[in-house]
Nucleic acid binder design. Structure first.
Lengths: 237, 237
DNA sequence: AAACATCATATATATGACTTTAATATAATC
DNA sequence: GATTATATTAAAGTCATATATATGATGTTT
């Protein structure tokens, strides 16, 4: 049995995801141009040496993320970039692997500056008792790790802190950012913050404002965090 | 005869999308509980009376939106709510059809208040010459429609105006909001704004600030718009 | 020239066989 | 008895192929 296309064999996830990722790579790198018709199902099946089932599931995945659109007789077309759902964690994961990380990281920071202050304000107003307990426990962990520093533990706690804020807004539209944040943190681990860059003071301000139910103060504290943070830009892999 | 037309019209989309929508409905309404294992492929195929191909494509669609997760031997599990990607236009479309619109609309407004001011600020700074031309042409259309009012035309132009701002940020993460906005506008058409609620003055301020490259002014103008707008809450269908 | 019928082709759906994965139970080992 | 191999097995994953359906292109009728 000759594996003609071992290019995919390295990955571990299911076949159709691997294929989807490979097609996504070609789209994101513009190797497949926007609005272009990609090769027919049969052609792609032969190229990847997979069944139509697997290929079609891959295409469905990409269609759902706004990258493709299929029509009978016409074929499957690459949608224009403004349809790509960059707030999809899986797609974001692929983007990070394939494009200029420095630019992505800067764009992400600009997103955080819009979202997080309002999220903190909403959390201050709407967090449930249970969520406040979780937030409290997480902040205390951050405080402890700040004093007994461990990089991985800090990253995990920092991420959990901001995740909880999103969840505490009580707003469905803020939920996806928790996953986007997780994806970004995991990808840029080692670039985001180091000892001395924990900004524990700013985090404490956010925490206290939320617990006190002071929306305006929570908003401002989060703005301060994003401005004061030693937000290192990632180096190229 | 005309009755069968309606049936056909009601089931317009492809089979796997219809099935996905139906499963999504059960998940969103919590008829299928979070973390619950849904019936096996074979069972569902019999229930819906469809092939495994169609069912599996439906499940792939929902998996991509964060609603499901499949594992061999275990089955397919409903993921917890904080994994649902509410910023996916298609999912949002389904959500709007199935849940309390008033609550969704309010949550959406809270999202706009976070996103749009920053988007306007970024657009003021980064919009390309081409984008400024498009924005200019769109605003002039808005101005005209304001004086020769036509509801549908206004809605379309209003939507296009805000869409162009998102596109003009030069930030990939802001792109998806354009589609989310479109979905919301289309769904809440008739509820969003009426004659006298065009807020042409506030829109003009945003437009001018962006054209002048004044980020702070653009941000503030958009805040003013969202605060002053006669943002009617939708009535129940 | 407009309406209609036909054809070609790409995706959409269906079906059945086979493979891989992983939870669970069972047996072998210490 | 506790631990560690091993077999069982149920579920999704993959494959191959056949048929249905939709649509752009072409031709035909009026």
């Amino acid at each position: 049995m000759s594996h003609s296309f071992l290019q995919i064999a390295g990955s571990k996830r299911s076949l159709h995801v691997q294929v989807a990722r490979e097609i996504a790579r070609k789209i994101l790198s513009e190797e497949l141009a926007q609005n272009e018709i990609i090769p027919s199902e049969m052609t792609l099946c032969e190229q990847f040496n997979i069944s139509r089932t697997a290929l079609r599931e891959a295409i469905k995945l990409l269609t759902s993320k706004g990258l493709l659109e299929s029509k009978p007789k016409v074929g499957t077309r690459v949608k224009s970039r403004d349809n790509w759902n960059f707030l999809d964690s899986q797609l974001l994961d692929w983007v990070i692997d394939l494009s200029d990380n420095e630019a992505i990281y800067k764009e992400f920071l600009a997103l955080r500056k819009a979202i997080e202050p309002e999220a903190a304000a909403l959390a201050a107003e709407y967090a449930t008792a249970e969520q406040r307990i979780l937030l409290s426990s997480t902040f205390q962990k951050m405080d402890y790790i700040h004093n007994h520093f461990n990089f991985e533990e800090w990253t995990e706690a920092d991420m959990e802190f901001h995740r909880l804020i999103f969840l505490s807004t009580g707003n469905s539209f803020y939920l996806p950012f928790a996953n986007v944040l997780r994806t970004m943190f995991k990808s840029f681990i080692g670039h985001s913050s180091e000892k001395g860059g924990t900004c524990i003071k700013e985090h404490r301000e956010i925490y206290r404002a939320i617990m006190a139910g002071d929306a305006n103060k929570a908003r401002q504290a989060n703005i301060d965090l994003l401005n004061n943070s030693n937000h290192r830009l990632p180096t190229r892999n």
